[in-house]
Simulated assay, not measured.
Amino acid sequence: MFTLLVKPRPKLSEKRPSLKALSDTHGGKYTVQSGIIPGETRDYWLIMESFHALPTGGMTRSAQIHRSWGMINQNREKTFRRLKVFSLVYLLEGEGLFSDERGKTDQPIRAGDLLCLFPDVGHVYCPLPGTRWNEINIEFSGPAFSAWTGTDLLDPAEPIRRLAPMDYWLGRFHESVLPLAKKGLEPALADTGRLIALIAEMCSTWIRPHSDHAMEWIHTARAWLIDLPTTVPLNLVEAAKALGLGEQAYRKKFKRLCGVSPTTFRSRHLIEQACHELCGTDRGIKDIAYSLGFRTEFYFFRRFRQITGLSPGEYRRRATQ
């Protein structure tokens, strides 16, 4: 499959935090792996893995790999790999080639490219000979994601997409998976919602590529909502003013760039905080609701069930079993 011969590239630079440092901070499991290439190793951070799929679908595995050799064995053997799940592979450093059984042969790929892999579609990819690359990947499955397959969405005919700037999109990947890096947590519907929001944002970028300025704007807008104290109600007029826009223009721009409205983003963030409290503390549900700015326990229960599909009590019982 790979026929291009090139001179070995220099070693990848360490521009970002080491995977061990990220694992120490956020959780997951860090290992140094060997065996594929004699005498060489790769840094492997298994961020999360779950064998308990939600009925609607969700994330099953995510890892970030530095000095990866990709699918070098399959390439040597001239064989395709077929997954039973969807997978997104985002290249952070390096370059290589990609082939699949739908007609893509030795397609050049480089840092900033996203590989969209589909269930039962054979594929192979790896760095150029004599080189390595850095990547982050997410695997997921379920009917919630099948609806995102098609033209201008997750399209098997377009397995290679471009996402830039890289630091922004690496941050978005981390926002989707890092909440599940903590030991003992299993994916919930709120986690599926974060991944769907990421996919929606990516798809909108492919349809209408965003400028660096737009990426900076949505990063600032998201940060403003996240940093808003949980007990302070969201005021869209104030949020829009902070971003230099009128309310209507702010709401439209936020949804176009983020894939969801500011109100939905804020609600998901608060319920995500509630999930962490329910799993990691023995605080009462009413106390958690009030600390997150919900004025009544009834409203908290309703919003929690709308986003996760479970009541707070059911979520806590499942998470602690």
Rank of each mutant, 00 (worst) to 15 (best):
T192P: 01
L153F: 04
A221V: 02
L92Q: 08
P312M: 13
V6T: 12
T308C: 07
G27H: 01
V6A: 14
A147P: 02
E77Q: 15
I199Q: 08
P8T: 07
M202A: 10
P10T: 04
S68Q: 10
Q33G: 03
D155I: 02
E139A: 08
F2H: 10
L83G: 03
P17K: 12
T296N: 07
L115E: 02
I271Q: 03
T296R: 10
P119A: 03
R161V: 06
Q74R: 13
G35E: 15
K286P: 00
L243P: 00
K182H: 05
S18H: 06
H52Y: 04
L88T: 02
A274V: 03
H269P: 00
G150D: 03
E93F: 01
W133I: 01
G284P: 01
E216A: 13
K104T: 00
M71F: 05
V6I: 13
M166L: 14
I196M: 14
L198F: 12
Q273K: 13
R16I: 07
E139H: 13
R172E: 14
R132A: 13
Y44H: 11
L178S: 02
P209E: 15
A181Y: 01
P10G: 04
W133C: 04
K252V: 05
P10C: 08
T231V: 09
K11Y: 07
K7E: 15
Q74V: 01
A164Q: 13
L19E: 06
A239N: 09
Y250S: 11
R316L: 01
T79P: 02
G244I: 11
T264L: 10
